[in-house]
Design a protein around this nucleic acid. Sequence first.
DNA 1: ACTATAAAAGTGTTCTGAACACCTGATGAC
DNA 2: GTCATCAGGTGTTCAGAACACTTTTATAGT
Lengths: 242, 242
Amino acid sequence: MEKGPIKPVHRRQISTATIDRILSMISDGYWSPGECLPPQRDLAKSLGVGMSTLREALQSLQTMGVLEMRHGSGTFVSSQPFVEPYEKFIDVSVSLGGLDLEMLFEARGIIESGLAFHAVEHATEDQINELFDILQREWECIEAKDHECCHDLDLAFHRLIATMVNNKFLAQIDSTLFKALDQLFRVLPLTKEGWKLHYVVAEAIRDRDSFGASEAMRTLIESSAARYFPYMKVTSHKMEVQ
Amino acid sequence: MEKGPIKPVHRRQISTATIDRILSMISDGYWSPGECLPPQRDLAKSLGVGMSTLREALQSLQTMGVLEMRHGSGTFVSSQPFVEPYEKFIDVSVSLGGLDLEMLFEARGIIESGLAFHAVEHATEDQINELFDILQREWECIEAKDHECCHDLDLAFHRLIATMVNNKFLAQIDSTLFKALDQLFRVLPLTKEGWKLHYVVAEAIRDRDSFGASEAMRTLIESSAARYFPYMKVTSHKMEVQ
DNA sequence: ACTATAAAAGTGTTCTGAACACCTGATGAC
DNA sequence: GTCATCAGGTGTTCAGAACACTTTTATAGT
């Protein structure tokens, strides 16, 4: 794309205006993903703003996951945008009272059961085999009481199902929720009962049973939540796979 | 809370370290929601960083929705954290190729059908009456061909269901998705067929049928998506309410 | 000619100090 | 008592310099 002169910004809040300008320039294709922006000194000159102001904007855009600033190299448009902007401050939101744990568990239950539903139609044979392979290793870790390994496999189990659906948006949110809940209180080790629920989900996916997978996953998340909130009401409709 | 001396930060990336420090101070309750932070000049001094650096951190935190900077007044901890950080740059992510529309529709389908499922157990009689009231007005607007009004009622319909569940996290994401999809291509006007689907959802909620509500909502979103992507595969399992 | 080291250029990072803009509360005029 | 004005506090923007990291180029040794 040919590069004409960069139009300067003017508005009451120059910092915000600069963010919007850069955002729209990227949106319009002036800069492509992975491309390097001009040096900050030059860019500030071109935009007609001070360097501090420009940097405030760049920093915010980096927080959004749109830009990536590399010391000594340059400022790049993120080639893989939509990173985890949440992650960092979900726990802050919790502390501030904007969110509570049960809400996050509920959200995770909804998203994961939905993912399981859609995983049924997208899963390849290889992925299903991989799923059962994870299950196999989970069982071994449970018997060996290797909690660290259990935890990693648990994450792998959920991540694989999210991968099946191939929906970056939900996968990102789900991953963030998993990490947030994991961080807020170290997740309890996987039990044999939990493993059984994992197995039911895997079976339903293998048998191409959308509703079964969805329900099994809902039960799984709710039973997981119930370990932290014993008083929490569990929906627990019918666990019998159709 | 009593306030001891503020410990200075030290790390290679001072800007990032400052963000983390402030975030953890809020998380630890050093500053409460709605409270005013010290003047930037003083705070920079206390943290042992330059003012530009501090401002870069504050700006990022504002982007996250954690802080609110008011010109001439002060910098405040957001009393209602967890605002819409997504909204601003979802369209940028789309432009950069990180997200595509079908993915967003799929995400919305999953979240909304999950919300509908849970709405069944949380909905009050008043809310259900309100839902049918919206339905009534929708029908009138369709007959009058008042597209603007239809659009608003459509939004109200979905928003009310999200409200029933009382899950801010999902409600926020859902609302963001609605707006993003609405903005990316102005939503098509509500048809009588669409209204019928709305009605099925409302009936299922009234009858306290979780699965019916969930499935009806899935069908609704998918049929909505199908108007934009005729080639898109519609799951459309059984529409018959159990 | 090749490689390893050193220098230089390019770029992001941080700090200081100043001037400006906005909001708020105090002061004074009516 | 009410309103306008002013002064102080606070956020906003800018300019310039010094520093740190990375990449490229130049140099020296083999």
